[in-house]
């Protein structure tokens, strides 16, 4: 699905990612954990194509294509989706209009016809139920005045509407109450399939009670310093990161 090799990234002359390699195969769910500021969102944003981040070295192949050569919109059309850690509000832009524009942009790139307005509405209604959002949300401006949890659910709504191949969820579980967490987890679980992959960025193993990761990676100082399974996430939650830090120091 995606293969990241030796990725170096800087922002404003500051090096943030320092040689990341990661391969996610179809159907897999990878978890990335790490302290604040370790570079998790940077990685997510680089994958989505934010141009503020400069790739100084390395390569990323997405289903055989050179991801770094693609515009953000083309990455989305090719099936890459980022659920943002902090979804922005876009005053004046109607959520439904936006969703429809997004769906049609993806369809158009596949040479399909624009979706019929009635079909679209009934589809959205169904998806709204899945994320337990009231219909009024799609008639409001995108994320404008949404609560934290509503924003996250709106991200999941977009994910299940756009049906990406690779979904990167950047702390979609943070700040959610347990009901909202279950909804988000269910959204992801229902959506899992052998040809869809996930990268889940999180601080808490809580969400992993609801979904089974194939791998857990620890990001520290711009590098993946340790990889493991579910057990690793539990250990981190219990003991924090310093023991990993010590391991790394010893190895050096």
């Amino acid at each position: 699905m995606i293969k990241i090799e030796n990725l170096y990234v800087s922002v404003e002359e500051k090096e943030i990612l320092k040689g990341i390699s990661l391969e996610v195969k179809p159907g897999e769910l990878h978890v990335i954990m790490g302290r604040n500021g370790s570079g998790k969102s940077t990685l997510a944003n680089v994958l989505a194509g934010k141009d503020k981040y400069k790739v100084t070295n390395g390569s990323i192949k997405f289903n055989g294509e050179n991801l770094l050569d693609m515009l953000p919109e083309n990455r989305a059309r090719a099936g890459l989706f980022l659920s943002f850690q902090y979804p922005v509000a876009i005053p004046g832009v109607n959520n439904m209009y936006f969703l429809k524009a997004a769906v049609n942009a993806v369809r158009k790139s596949r040479g399909e016809e624009e979706i019929d307005a009635v079909d679209f509405l009934s589809m959205i209604r169904e998806k709204l139920k899945m994320v337990d959002l009231d219909e009024s949300f799609i008639h409001r401006p995108v994320n404008d005045g949404f609560s934290g949890g509503e924003k996250k659910r709106n991200e999941i709504l977009q994910m299940i509407t756009l049906e990406p191949k690779l979904s990167i969820l950047d702390e979609t579980d943070s700040g959610l109450d347990i009901d909202a967490l279950k909804i988000v987890a269910k959204g992801v679980n229902d959506f899992r399939s052998p040809d869809r992959s996930f990268i889940l960025i999180t601080h808490y193993q809580r969400i992993l009670n609801y979904m089974k990761p194939d791998f857990v990676h620890i990001l520290m100082n711009g590098k993946i310093v340790k990889s493991g399974t579910m057990e690793l996430a539990k250990e981190v939650e219990k003991k924090g990161y310093s023991w990993i830090e010590e391991e790394v120091a010893e190895a050096a």
Binding site: L71, A76, A101, L162
Partner: peptide
Amino acid sequence: IDEDALFYLQSRGINKQDAMELMVIGFANE
């Protein structure tokens, strides 16, 4: 124009030009 909002729209498959128009019209829609 808010670059973060622009990127948000692009990251959903909407090309930059259309995203700009959407945002400017959105601005006016208020």
